[in-house]
Simulated assay, not measured.
Amino acid sequence: MKVVAAMSGGVDSAVAAARAVEAGHEVTGIHLALSRNPQSYRTGARGCCTIEDANDARRAADVIGIPFYVWDLSDRFHTDVVEDFMDTYAAGQTPNPCLRCNEKIKFAAVLDRALALGFDAVATGHYATVVESGGDIELHRAVDGAKDQSYVLGVLDDRQLRHSLFPLGDTTKDRVREEAARRGLLVADKPDSHDICFVADGDNVGWLKEKLGDRAPNHGGEIRDDATGDVLGRHDGTYGFTIGQRRGLRLGRPAPDGRPRYVLDIEPVSGTVTVGPRERLAVDRIEGDRLRWCGASLPAGTVLDGDAVTVQLRAHGAEHRARVAVGDDTLDVELLDHADGIAPGQAVVVYDGTRVIGSATITRSRRVAAVGAPGVGGVGG
């Protein structure tokens, strides 16, 4: 096959490209220029989005012996990822920009361009596995559970999966680094990227404050106690908070019992942030929209319920046993294992064993009632 290898400048994508060549594919390396102004994105060799990363990717392509090009997708990236990130925070929600980048950029814009140019597939350094079963295409977890990235790939549809290669799904990170060194790739010891690529210094709150400024309705508001309704302090913007946050609350006085408080709810219209004890973070029901099927779709009315059905709610979070009801473009998830600190805007990804079934964007969650309490609290829009 003719394959485009998306090369970020990190070790994973370099080894993935090398493995694609070794598998007999005709491979062309590409690096994505995602910033209109490279100086405005993260500096330093961290594996994504910097000038140093582009140079690292080019050197790796030279060592592997494949053609290499830079594709400018900065306008598309700004619209589909950066603007989405700001809009989601402005709505009092918590986005996942890496998931949105996979959906809109790496496996949409890049794939569409690759197919138009006569390529058959896009290869990346993600840790996941694609399996063909009876004519259906399936996405499964990687062998290395600590590095598994199937969660952020849960937005890929059947067409995208059929044109995707994940050469690292059967190996571990340690072995990838060993292989890179063996192949003479200088990125063998390069650190992984953890920060959001378009936030240059890793200060998400500072970046959002600069970009959003006084943008209504998130400028300023009260921090209130969940149990009493008392005003405990004020803040400069709801974008500085996420559900489950403990640090940086700057409250005027401690809780009566001396225990830490956590963010329980964010109301962007009034600007109210509600805080309370950790046990009030427990959630037993989730609603989501923007439903995406990862492979074959399931009809509305389907209920997934069994020992192997789980959901994952964070990129490297735990699995939770669940009962999942499918709507027209929605999921209703009953968590059999409670989860803590679930925020609207995050993704809920549904698994059947190791297979990814699909995903949705969380719109609401229901907090577990405290023991002896008469009602149940709700979080979300």
Results as ranks from 00 to 15, higher is better:
Glu179Asn: 07
Ala121Thr: 00
Gly154Asn: 00
Glu132Leu: 12
Ala188Gly: 07
Asn218Ser: 12
Asp120Asn: 05
Thr171Trp: 05
Ala216Asp: 13
Trp207Cys: 08
Ser164Tyr: 07
Arg175Asp: 13
Gly220Arg: 10
Ala128Trp: 08
Asp120Ile: 03
Arg175Glu: 13
Glu138Ser: 07
Asp170Cys: 00
Glu138Asp: 09
Cys197His: 15
Val199Gln: 01
Ser193Met: 15
Val176Ala: 04
Asp158Ala: 13
Phe198Gln: 03
Leu165Arg: 10
Tyr151Ile: 03
Gly202Ile: 07
Cys197Ser: 15
Ser193Tyr: 11
Asp203Asn: 14
Tyr151Pro: 02
Val143Thr: 08
Gly135Val: 12
Asp157Lys: 07
Leu153His: 01
Lys209His: 14
Cys197Asp: 15
Cys197Tyr: 15
Asp144Lys: 05
Asp170Asn: 11
Leu168Tyr: 03
Val205Thr: 10
Tyr127Phe: 08
Ala180Tyr: 00
Gly134Asp: 12
Leu165Ile: 11
Val122Gly: 04
His126Leu: 13
Pro217Thr: 02
Thr172Gly: 10
Gly145His: 11
Leu212Arg: 00
Cys197Ala: 15
Phe166Thr: 12
Val187Asn: 04
Gly202His: 08
His219Ala: 15
Gly125Ala: 05
Asp214Arg: 06
Leu153Glu: 01
Ala181Lys: 02
Asp195His: 15
His126Gly: 10
Leu208Glu: 07
Gln160Ala: 15
Asp157Gly: 14
Gly221Phe: 05
Arg182His: 09
Ala128Pro: 03
Asp170Tyr: 06
Gly145Lys: 15
Asp157Arg: 10
Leu212Gly: 04
Asp201Thr: 12
Lys211Val: 01
